[in-house]
Simulated scan of single mutants.
Amino acid sequence: MKGTSLGATVHYFTTRLLNGIQKQEKIKPYKVSSIQSVPSHIIRPSYVGSISNPAIVKDPEVHDDTGIHHMRNAGRLAASALEYARSLVKPGITTDEIDKAVHKMIIGAGAYPSPLGYKGFPKSICTSVNEVAFHGIPDLRPLEDGDIINIDVTIYLNGYHADTSKTFLCGNVNNNAMQLVEVTEDCLEKAISVCGPGVEFKELGKIFIDIAGKYGYSVDTSYAGHGIGKHFHSAPCINFCEDQAGCMMAGQTFALVYGSAEPLLSLGSIEYELWDDNYTFVTADGSLSAQFEHTLLITKTGVEILTKLS
């Protein structure tokens, strides 16, 4: 789920398609099922049940050996949960069904699904279909052949969060949507490849701007990445501007993000509409959105992807 940091997670972009490309019917709000329960023995983040919204912690997440151990465990579980979600994507299944299945897996592993109860969010994962840019609430709409869907999973295990997301193809997806997804993932991979101790965060913005230019996209810097670890969202705020301040530190974990806590690529300027649920942002013109995210650890010699299955 989007926030404002880069250390342990990497979120990715929203991109517009060219005018004239045939689009499916616009996504509309659907019925949302009741909130699922979590066994009482599972440790919850402090924001669950709070009447006040959680603040973004001002200090970056830099971990000792114990913290790194816990972050690795959390990252592996988040990656496994996302892979399980991927296996469920097919025409006819609802995002509500995917949410329930992943919820069951996460609590079965003794972890808490971080989005559940975060600022009142009613589900355990975020599912953003087609033009939904971020924070889509799982609902009873069946996925259709040709949809693309971003599934964003964050788990809280032994006091540590790990966050990851990918955009998946549902059935037979057209070439333009496939390119959007491929370019978005490529940007994430290239950004990760340059991460390491002492690297300036502004280098990440240069990579995205370069790739965006090759495809005729502009980069939306409205949203930011965020640190992650003991806290869901912490410093630094990484918005991928070329003048972004700050450097990466060994032991740091963060979420690299374009968009609402994710990087966004778009043709032209990006405008969003917020649904009445106060969570779901969609592109105003109905153009497609894709996102990819990993939780990262900066090591003494480079970077480790914590949410990548070995």
Rank of each mutant, 00 (worst) to 15 (best):
I27Q: 11
K28R: 14
P29Q: 10
Y30T: 14
Y30A: 13
K31E: 15
K31C: 10
S33N: 08
S34R: 09
I35H: 01
I35Q: 11
Q36N: 02
S37R: 05
S37Y: 02
V38Y: 01
P39S: 05
P39N: 07
H41N: 11
I42R: 02
R44A: 15
Y47T: 08
Y47V: 13
V48C: 01
V48T: 01
G49Q: 09
S50M: 06
I51M: 08
I51C: 02
I51T: 12
I51G: 03
N53E: 12
N53P: 05
P54R: 12
P54L: 13
P54D: 14
A55C: 03
V57A: 07
V57R: 08
K58W: 11
D59I: 09
D59H: 10
V62E: 01
D64T: 03
T66D: 08
T66A: 12
H69I: 13
H69C: 14
M71V: 09
N73E: 11
N73A: 12
A74E: 02
A74H: 03
G75V: 07
R76E: 10
A78V: 13
A78W: 00
A78F: 02
L82A: 02
L82V: 03
E83P: 02
E83R: 14
A85W: 08
A85D: 07
A85H: 06
A85R: 05
V89L: 15
P91C: 14
G92E: 06
I93Y: 01
I93W: 00
T95P: 03
T95G: 03
T95A: 04
D99G: 13
K100F: 08
K100P: 00
V102F: 15
H103S: 12
H103A: 12
K104P: 01
K104Y: 14
M105P: 05
I106Y: 03
I106L: 07
I107M: 06
I107V: 13
A109F: 06
G110T: 04
A111Y: 00
Y112T: 04
P113C: 13
P113V: 09
S114L: 11
S114H: 07
P115W: 06
G117L: 04
G117H: 04
